[in-house]
Design a protein around this nucleic acid. Structure first.
Lengths: 147, 147
DNA sequence: CTTGACCTTCCCGTGATGGGAAGCCCACAT
DNA sequence: ATGTGGGCTTCCCATCACGGGAAGGTCAAG
């Protein structure tokens, strides 16, 4: 199976598969005589694992940890659970920050008549408000995957 | 007022102020004889505007639009409101995606006993699930500011 | 044998910063 | 006057997870 087919079958683009191989997230696969990468069914399963983990918002670094646990048949499920819960916590933190933004903005927009007149509480807020409640500082947690 | 003081007073780092000037988000300020940037109170107000807009998650491009409206005394408040509501919609979309991720992960983690045994439904899911419901594709909306 | 679809590597760009180096400049203390 | 320590300047590099595209080799079908 060539990289294109592996990409289609796994949902990971060929570009990404090469990138993951380059950064060491996935092992180096075999090559044909002409230099084409060749994928086995087990490689496909791993690619799907990676794809799925990315869909759940894990960073590449975290996926590396997950893959290590996956391969380790003597892993402790507690380690996996810890990673998952940390990811949930990170997601919830980002969600909370964005909800704050959305709430404030929706409130301001609600107060704006939104017609041809120039008066606008949104601009007034941006202009004067030094910072509403929280300084919207970069979240304490390390930056992690968004999409 | 030098750039360092402007940074402290506005909450925008000196690095960022230079960057914003370079990309044209903010106008080029005056310089002293020795080449130091010099900030007036009105520049400070604009920097605070930018800072506040970023705190609400607006991308630099959107902030440029907001600034243009801010400076235009004959603006229509409807234009401002549209930008704000679009931002709210973008935020809510991202929030929904992340809530999906968090929900799925929390569910999987809940089903994992999290002890020293290797069995783990989280890994089982990542391994087998081709893609739960939505393919978690990159959101239709253009990528925009997260933090 | 040609054509078109694949594959390869390599380099550049994204967005919004932070880090750091090399080199001026300024104010204040000695 | 001279040092010293901080602040300013520009410039380049790194981040993170990719996508685009160029230049060139390969493969399979017609």
């Amino acid at each position: 199976m060539n990289i294109g087919d592996a990409a289609k079958a796994s949902g990971v683009s060929a570009k990404m598969i090469r990138y993951y191989e380059e950064i060491g997230l996935i092992p180096i696969v075999g090559r044909t005589a002409s230099g084409y990468r060749f994928y086995e069914p087990k490689d496909l399963q791993m690619l799907r694992f990676v794809r799925r983990a990315r869909d759940l918002g894990f960073s590449v670094g975290r996926i590396a940890e997950l893959l290590a646990l996956w391969r380790d048949r003597s892993r402790a499920s507690g380690d996996v659970k810890r990673l998952a819960l940390a990811q949930v916590a990170g997601l919830r933190q980002k969600i909370a920050e964005m909800e704050d933004m959305a709430r404030i903005l929706a409130h301001l927009a609600h107060a704006c008549h939104g017609d041809d007149r120039p008066d606008c509480p949104i601009l007034t807020d941006l202009e004067s408000s030094p910072t509403h409640g929280t300084p919207a500082k970069k979240s304490a947690l390390p930056p992690f995957q968004i999409l």
